[in-house]
Each structure stands twice: as structure tokens, then as C-alpha cells.
Design a protein around this nucleic acid. Structure first.
Lengths: 138, 138
DNA sequence: GTAGTGTCTCTAGTAACTAGAGGTTCAAGA
DNA sequence: TCTTGAACCTCTAGTTACTAGAGACACTAC
């Protein structure tokens, strides 16, 4: 049996976050000691590792909830799980695309100004003030 | 003079968001009609366009505050503005890097499962449960 | 004058935590 | 067995950048 701190160390999930996951229904309520402290078993540890890994991959709490539900029904089709993963992937790709466009624009803006001048002539400020100076859409 | 709705249309910033920016100190308090409604002038419009553009580029409210402060002092060195832009750029690059790693991992996970099987054998779920199945760090 | 739309303030909600207060429990050493 | 200090408990509130809704008032066109 692990205390919440022990679980935290093993999974690298902070203690208040573990309690938060419990409140959100991602973790089921663990046993308690006589003194009301949480004690987790191996299943709890595994479950939390799953959550941590999915969060690291950017899955939302909601998506993780659905995945956990599926885990609980091994006989059910895994189409939903596949869909969640694919949707997460397209999310990530959309974000990358957008960030690339921003990167280009920021490079252009930053290059125009070395920080040596005064704010009146600053290219950074001018670029932000006037969208027409931009080369790309964003 | 523009009403808040007029300003919203021209800048594509939603009305409640404009009020929010005012509350946050990004926009100075505009004149009011006798009936207490906001009326903006050209300077207000320009300022809001600046904010909108910077937000679209991912600058935080805090960063924008600093940039606006600089705009107000045309004689001051623009080093701070340059630093903010550069830091924003490295932020964006870090995010891209991380997202690329996630993309790779998600592609791998998704490929392993076509959604046809049952959840018990689902590669998506197995991958999430066991970090050791991952090829990359994240 | 009245109808309909726009605007006002205020409160509360979102996602996914994080921080802090004030109090209790546990485990190890004396 | 007692004590001490770290770990734990619950609860509330704060974070970022908004968004939604309630209930009331203002403005504009007919």
C-alpha cells in the first residue's frame, strides 16, 4: 500500500493533483487508514500512470475519462479509443501548423529590431501596431 | 466616436473581451455618453487593434501590458520590446518541438489500432497504460 | 411613443491545476 | 512511551483569458 506522497514520487504527479483527479472522478476513491489518510494499491498506481501518460500526450481530462471507461469494458469495441487518439492527433497537428505561422512572423518581427534603438522607432512595436506589415495570415 | 459594438465589429474582438481588457488595464477607460455607454475615438481603436494583433501572435496579457507601456515612452530604449518578442519566439519554438514529439507518438499509437478490435486488445489503451511501449521521450 | 436592439454591471463558469490556512496523523528516534 | 517533525487532511481561493447569463437601462428608427 502506498501513501499519496509515495504515489506522487513514483508517478511524478503532484499530491494536490492526485486529489484533484480523484475529485474529477478519474481515480476511484482509495482505502483510508483509521486516521483518514489515503492508501493506494497497485491498481491505483497503474491507473494514475495511465492518466499521467495520457496527460503528457495532451489528452484532456474528459478524453481520459472516456478512455478509462473503455478500459473497464474489455469486451467493448475499441473504435471510440481509436477515434479519441486520432482526434487528439489532428488537434496536435493543427496547433503545430498555427505555431509555425507564428514562428515565421515572430522571426520577421524580431529580426527588424536589435533592441539598440528607442521605442519610437522600434520595429517590434510598429509591426504589432500595424497588421499590414505582416507577410503571413494569422 | 465608436460604440463598443462598433469597435468590436472593426477589430473582431468580442464586446465582453473589450470590457475585460479595460478591466485588466490594457485599454484606458473611454468617454461615456450621458447614459453611461462607452464611446471610443480613433486612438482607442488603434490601441485595441494592437492588442488583438499581439494576442493573435500569442503574447500574454502581461507581455502586452509591458509593450503598451513602452509605446507610451517613445524616447525609452526598445530593448525590452525586443526581449519580449524574442522570448515569445523561443516559447513558440519550444511548444512546436514538444508538439512534434507528441505527434510522432500519437501517429505510432494510432497506427497500431484501426478501431476494429475490442478494447481488451486495443493498442491505444495498451500504449497509454505502458510508457515503456513509447519510442520517444515526452 | 414604442419596439427592438445594444449596452450596462455583476456574478459565476471554463480547464487543469496551484497555493495557502489551519488542523490532524504517522513514523522514527530518545 | 513520548515527542517531534514531516506528511497528510479539508476547504477556500487564485491562476489565464475569456465566456455566459441575469436583470436593468439606453439608444435609434419608425
Amino acid at each position: 500500500m502506498y501513501s499519496i506522497g509515495e504515489l506522487s514520487k513514483r508517478t511524478k504527479v503532484k499530491v494536490p493533483t492526485i486529489r484533484y483527479y480523484e475529485e474529477m472522478g478519474l481515480l476511484s476513491e482509495p482505502e483510508r487508514t483509521e486516521g483518514n489518510q489515503r492508501r493506494y494499491d497497485a491498481a491505483g498506481l497503474e491507473r494514475l500512470s495511465f492518466i499521467k501518460h495520457a496527460r503528457d500526450l495532451g489528452f484532456s481530462i474528459e478524453a481520459i475519462s472516456k478512455l478509462i471507461e473503455l478500459q473497464g469494458h474489455p469486451d467493448r469495441s475499441c473504435q471510440a479509443a481509436s477515434e479519441i487518439a486520432v482526434s487528439q492527433l489532428s488537434d496536435v497537428r493543427a496547433k503545430i501548423k498555427r505555431l509555425r505561422a507564428l514562428e515565421k512572423e515572430l522571426v520577421r518581427i524580431s529580426k527588424g529590431c536589435d533592441g539598440a534603438g528607442v521605442s519610437q522607432d522600434c520595429y517590434v512595436l510598429a509591426s504589432l501596431a500595424d497588421h499590414k506589415l505582416c507577410r503571413h495570415e494569422h
